[in-house]
Design a binder for these strands. Structure first.
Length: 279
DNA sequence: AATCATCCCTGAACGC
DNA sequence: TGCGTTCAGGGATGAT
């Protein structure tokens, strides 16, 4: 499931294919699911950026001067199973036709992904993007602010997944970060030392995962792959996610799985103890 | 305002 | 073998 490391890996891989190219046409048969993509026809890709798990194609008229700001953004969210491919497949949902006849295919078996064109910065139709917290690997992600906000948070994993304290953390990296910080996923109102550990754990886990090209799980059609089919490798460094029943690598206690916030949640019951809210 | 359940969607894994 | 059931989950939405 693409989280920030997988989305960033995707961005780096497809940027050279898109930057400077004019989009001739975007084809799909679900106008309600992929709104306003026709506005991108004939526009040039100025840049490909990322906010959290969202990819943003900055588009401007093909003949616009370089110092004229872009006037359209194409937002792409990979959802659970989305990814770009160089060849059409049974789950191709959107086809990007570029100048010179090149094509890039958006593949998405479960159709949770999103593609939409909006005016730059106008994210009202995507409230999670509009309220997105700081990038975990940037200087904007401040420890003091994170610690302050964590002092009054609800269940910490649910809070992390909200994208508000920090962007790009999904189910896998939330479990991994909490394992590393030795905090129970259902812990509320983090103490200062707990929040500080979690802050550094998020940065550490996300940084290492980006460096590894993300995580690739299993070998089914829905699993994350780069556009050229290459898998990431961070899954070999997972300590909690998907490790149900296996011994914790710190203490040997079997990893437990529970459901928290409608999400499968993996943790070590020995290392990650739920502290009473008033203690 | 914050929290929560429901829905979307389909392949894989599972059970009989 | 084959069919039916369950599970996976990011984020929008409506309800509380």
């Amino acid at each position: 499931m693409p989280e920030l490391p997988e989305v960033e890996t995707t961005r780096r891989k497809i940027e050279p294919l898109l930057r400077g190219k004019t989009i001739v046409q975007i084809q799909h048969d679900a106008p309600h699911k992929y709104p306003n993509t026709h506005l991108a026809h004939g526009k040039r890709v100025r840049a490909l950026t990322r906010r959290g798990k969202y990819l943003l194609l900055h588009l401007a008229a093909a003949d616009a001067a370089d110092d004229v700001p872009h006037d359209l953004e194409l937002i792409v969210h990979l959802g659970m199973t989305g990814g770009f491919r160089l060849e059409q497949g049974p789950h191709t949902r959107v086809t990007f036709e570029l100048e010179g006849g090149e094509k890039l295919y958006f593949n998405d078996p479960r159709r949770f992904g999103k593609v939409a064109a909006v005016r730059p910065g106008e994210y009202a139709s995507m409230p999670t993007l509009a309220a997105m917290g700081p990038e975990p690997l940037s200087d904007d992600f401040a420890e003091a602010e994170f610690v302050r906000a964590a002092a009054s948070c609800g269940a910490v994993k649910v809070w992390l997944l909200s994208q508000k304290p920090v962007s790009g953390v999904g189910n896998i990296y939330a479990d991994e970060s909490l394992w590393l910080a030795r905090i129970h996923p259902a812990q509320t109102r983090l103490q200062g030392d707990e929040a500080s550990r979690l802050y550094h754990a998020v940065r550490d886990v996300m940084g290492r995962a980006v460096a590894a090209g993300g995580s690739s799980l299993g070998n089914g059609t829905g699993n994350y792959r780069q556009h050229d089919g290459e898998p990431g490798s961070y899954q070999v460094h997972h300590h909690a996610y998907g490790k149900t029943g296996q011994p914790c690598e710190r203490c040997g206690t079997p990893i437990e799985k529970v459901v928290l916030g409608q999400r499968g949640t993996h943790f070590c019951p020995q290392c990650q103890v739920l502290r009473k809210a008033d203690s």
